[in-house]
Design a protein around this nucleic acid. Structure first.
Lengths: 120, 120
DNA sequence: TTTACAGTGAACCATATGGTTCACTATCAA
DNA sequence: TTGATAGTGAACCATATGGTTCACTGTAAA
């Protein structure tokens, strides 16, 4: 899987822009043309076209042009890989913090034992 | 929550670089100095320092300098917000595709009924 | 057959990004 | 005290990004 990392690169990059996340939310509600999106996000057609292309490149959006108008819909990719990546790392995080918790617990017990010993 | 979107921006941007994701994985295994990381990723100290700063900015890494060496660890943020965002959108995706499925089912039933009617 | 509309592509612009080198500081070790 | 080591910051570079304008094509409508 050489492409896996490149895929994560482009997808996370696509998601790192507030306008593009907004477009995804919009398309979650209903399909829209480039003009619709450009108006909603106060941008030129050309500007919005670029965003849509980036989302399309990342597989998050698909488009189809019929007549003059290009209709944009949510794409087939459902962020499985990204969700998986994040979940794995949440577990890594948790594991490390659990280890930290255990260390703290261990130190607490040790301290308690020391205190006991001193009292005897 | 004005900061929410800006937060997603910086976090997704931080995650959109393969080196930085690598650093997070490394730190998931064990803490490391800037020098350690720079060597592992074949980069100058200055270059790695920049990556670490970006991860730190995003709250994904924390660092502490003792003596000459700055030790980097996983930060306190565990990507909750990002996981939530992705999960919500996976649901959006699913909802839309389920609707599509239903439409297809509906059309199938209709077609069947038409066929029956014709046969009569 | 005009005229208006939706999109496209090239060119441009300012700023951001990912990297470097170089000069510097601070610390550790001999 | 003198090196060597770890990191830092400024300056620089090439390329990417997010946006624009302008000129253009193709389609729809009057």
């Amino acid at each position: 899987m050489v492409h896996y990392q490149a895929r994560l690169d482009t997808t996370f990059a696509a998601l790192s822009d507030v306008t593009r996340r907004g477009v995804l939310e919009q398309l979650g509600g209903s399909d829209a043309s480039i003009t619709d999106l450009a108006q909603r996000f106060h941008m030129t057609l050309t500007g919005m076209k670029k965003h849509v292309s980036i989302l399309e490149q990342a597989g998050l959006v698909t488009t189809e042009k019929v007549g003059r108008v290009r209709t944009c819909k949510l794409g087939l990719r459902r962020l499985e890989e990204e969700a998986t990546w994040i979940e794995q790392h949440r577990q890594l995080w948790s594991a490390r913090f659990d280890a930290l918790d255990e260390l703290v617990e261990h130190l607490k017990r040790k301290e308690k034992a020391d205190a006991q010993r001193k009292r005897r």
